[in-house]
């Protein structure tokens, strides 16, 4: 009787661990599935500026803008996205890649200089994703890694 109780407790603990572990694993590997077609608001490390990022429904294009209405318009449909992306591309080309718990935003300037911000150790939910550090390589500026938490909130 006593042994049976411990067996049940053990099974429950294992199930809890599996559920929690599975959820965590899913959150830490799902950013690539969650971002396409959505707009996120990113707040700067110093909390004084915000940025709106709209990811293409398919492909690696991304509209990066400080104007919320522009970003939301890009998320409306693929036609609007292409329109906003073309407008943005007059100054610079923005692309992204998400894999596992990592998402990188890359800007290629008109003179082909590449700047990249790679957000690491991302935990993604349906409403936001949180990165625990970012690695940067900014053309004519510098490179390094910042261990600060940054949050991307879904706004559309």
């Amino acid at each position: 009787m006593h042994k049976k109780r411990w067996t049940i407790v053990g099974i429950i603990v294992v199930i809890i661990l599996l559920v929690v572990g599975g959820t965590y694993w899913n959150m830490s590997h799902s950013v690539a599935k969650k971002v396409p077609g959505n707009t996120y608001r990113y707040q700067s490390v110093s909390k004084d500026k915000a940025l709106y990022i709209t990811f293409a429904q398919s492909g690696d294009q991304v509209v990066v803008n400080q104007n919320k209405s522009t970003a939301l318009k890009a998320a409306t449909n693929s036609s609007d996205f292409n329109s906003e992306y073309q407008t943005q591309s007059k100054d610079a080309t923005w692309t992204y890649k998400a894999d596992g718990g990592t998402l990188t935003l890359a800007e290629t300037s008109k003179d082909n200089k590449v700047s990249q911000w790679q957000y690491n150790k991302i935990l993604a939910t349906s409403k936001k994703f949180t990165s625990h550090s970012f690695t940067y390589q900014i053309a004519d500026a510098g490179q390094g890694q910042v261990k600060s938490k940054t949050v991307f909130e879904k706004v559309n």
Binding site: S44, V45, S46, K49, Q66, F134, I138, A141
Partner: peptide
């Protein structure tokens, strides 16, 4: 008065309206 984290922040590298 800025840290490198603040300088490298992506918001600094996107044009202000």
């Amino acid at each position: 008065n800025q840290t490198n984290a603040e300088r490298a922040d992506i918001t600094n590298w996107v044009a202000n309206t």
